[in-house]
């Protein structure tokens, strides 16, 4: 008797849960398929001969699969060099952005002083300008500093953006001030509070900043194009663009390269997204 009652009662709930889950997965998988469509085209084009890339109607599965594209690309362009340069630039720029950004954000979020908010708005407003607006004056300045053609010029341009400061500041605001006050009473300096209290608490934000900066640097084309001249300094995006000639373009190889260039980002992403799973996790959020 008792056992039946116990068994019977959870059943509808259990069934509903299973149905809910199933529906959720069906929905997610459908959405995923739709979202991945252009990526699928990219992979498919990367496995075709160039003249087969644009056909009407679209040929999603190549008739004549060219696996060798993925081998040939390494000899057609100096992929290894490009890859090394891109990894170097992305890593250095991301580290600097995360470090200086999170440090400055503490000043903007947790230390109160005159002129702070004005300075902050100024920071944000400059993000609004498209690079084309001040590209030429900036380039002239870099020429005068003798930095064009070096990695350093690109690092300087991209490492000190306002984006990281903004992102980290907003996250720090969610950390209660009482925590800092308590730490101050315990005799920690402001730098100590940043390093020992705030940083460990802001791993999700650090992860997202690092991820987004890395991706943006990795995929940047115009910056490296303007500032890096020597072929030995080129990045992957420049390498991919080199498949576009004056009168003809090898879109198949370009897509092959694009697929390859996505893989490292994917690895970084899967590594970084683990940090988005603390706090609430299972509870709440079913709405």
């Amino acid at each position: 008797m008792t056992t039946t009652a116990l068994e019977r009662r959870p059943t509808p709930r259990h069934v509903r849960r299973v149905i809910g889950r199933t529906l959720l997965y069906v929905l997610l998988i459908l959405a995923a398929a739709a979202i991945l469509l252009p990526f699928a085209w990219m992979v498919s084009a990367g496995l075709k001969r160039n003249n087969d890339v644009f056909t009407i109607p679209v040929q999603w599965i190549p008739h004549n699969v060219q696996w060798r594209n993925f081998v040939d690309i390494w000899s057609q362009i100096p992929m290894t060099t490009y890859l090394r340069n891109t990894v170097f630039l992305s890593t250095v720029i991301t580290s600097l952005q995360v470090l200086t950004g999170s440090f400055a954000a503490y000043g903007f979020a947790k230390v109160r002083f005159r002129g702070r908010d004005t300075l902050f708005v100024l920071y944000i407003a400059t993000i609004a300008l498209p690079w084309q607006a001040y590209m030429v004056p900036q380039y002239i300045m870099m020429v005068k500093a003798g930095l064009t053609g070096t990695f350093l010029s690109l690092i300087l341009i991209q490492a000190f953006g306002a984006f990281g400061v903004f992102l980290m500041r907003q996250y720090y605001l969610t950390i209660p001030d009482e925590l800092c006050e308590a730490a101050r009473l315990d005799g920690l300096s402001e730098y100590g509070i940043w390093a020992r209290i705030i940083l460990p608490l802001s791993k999700p934000a650090l992860a997202s900043l690092a991820l987004l900066t890395f991706v943006n640097t990795w995929n940047d084309y115009m910056g490296p194009f303007i500032y890096l001249t020597d072929n030995d300094h080129w990045t992957i995006q420049l390498g991919l663009q080199s498949f576009i000639g004056e009168f003809n373009a090898d879109y198949a190889m370009m897509m092959t390269g694009s697929v390859l260039s996505v893989i490292p980002i994917l690895v970084i992403f899967l590594f970084g997204q683990r940090y988005f799973i603390r706090g609430i996790a299972t509870s709440g959020m079913k709405g």
Partner: peptide, 28 residues
């Protein structure tokens, strides 16, 4: 001084603005 064909014009313009001294400029 090899420049990607797609944006050759942009780069040459920016380079010359910066006072670049490449001897021969090819006119696309």
């Amino acid at each position: 001084v090899d420049i990607l064909a797609a944006d050759y014009s942009t780069k040459v313009k920016v380079m010359l603005s910066g006072g670049d001294s490449t001897d021969i400029i090819t006119m696309k």
